[in-house]
Write a protein that binds this DNA or RNA. Structure first.
Length: 207
DNA sequence: AACCGGTTCAACCGCCTGCAC
DNA sequence: TGTGCAGGCGGTTGAACCGGT
């Protein structure tokens, strides 16, 4: 839609970049008084020199009162991984199952934390499989395990295309610093989340 | 103290979909 | 049925931040 050079990006009156506190307050106040919806006209009516899209994004990802940010718990991480295995990069769909979390946050989380470790594990595994054929056996075990939990819905994971597994063939997941903040310092000390741990926890959860 | 490289995350971009006309 | 518009979504970017040297 915004395909057309559509005034937005060319209009010198349209502001881009980080939101100011003043803009935030304007948006919050306007929505408090008038509600959400019809973002383009909302932006104009509120007197914001922003596109409707920009306002919507700012509201949904940051200003909404029920938005929770940071401190993704191990339970949430599990859920993210499980749902990602189900649906792939359907971030908004995944976000619907994590109250207070936004698709943008989940997407960022996945890309910066989980995917990073996935790639590391994959390259490690590639190296070791070159020297040890038995690795393949354990990999297929992993695949079988993952496939066992694979839902009936058809899913071709976009990220893992090119790999044989329906689920990334990594053995370990990062340890999430739960309560305390986003410092990822303890990540490298011990990767405590083995694949078996993850799935057995899911089994316990009845999934 | 300054620099540098890696990480994180807010925001933008472009495509897709649904809906009204 | 076709067209245009608005919103939704996933991918990408770039600035800010942080830790190591």
């Amino acid at each position: 839609m915004d395909k057309k050079p559509c005034n937005t990006s060319q209009d010198p009156e349209v502001r881009k970049g980080p939101w100011t506190l003043e803009e935030d307050l304007i948006l919050i106040n306007y929505i408090a008084n008038h509600g959400e919806g019809v973002w383009n006209s909302l932006a104009k009516a509120a007197g914001l020199k922003r596109t409707g899209k920009s306002c919507r994004l700012r509201w949904l990802n940051y200003l909404r009162p029920d938005v929770r940010r940071g401190n993704i718990t191990p339970e949430e991480q599990l859920l993210i991984m499980e749902l990602h295995a189900k649906w792939g990069n359907r971030w908004s769909k995944i976000a619907k199952h994590l109250p207070g979390r936004t698709d943008n946050e989940i997407k960022n989380y996945w890309r910066t934390r989980i995917q990073k470790h996935t790639k590391q594990a994959e390259s490690f595994q590639q190296q070791s499989s070159e020297t040890n054929d038995h690795q393949a056996a354990s990999t297929s075990q992993m695949s079988a395990l993952a496939a066992h939990h694979e839902p009936m819905e058809t899913y071709s994971p976009p990220i893992f295309q090119g790999t044989l597994e329906p689920f990334p063939s990594h053995h370990q997941f990062p340890t999430i610093p739960d309560h305390s903040s986003c410092t990822s310092d303890n990540n490298h000390t011990s990767n405590d989340w083995s694949m078996e741990d993850i799935w057995s926890m899911q089994l316990l959860n009845g999934d």
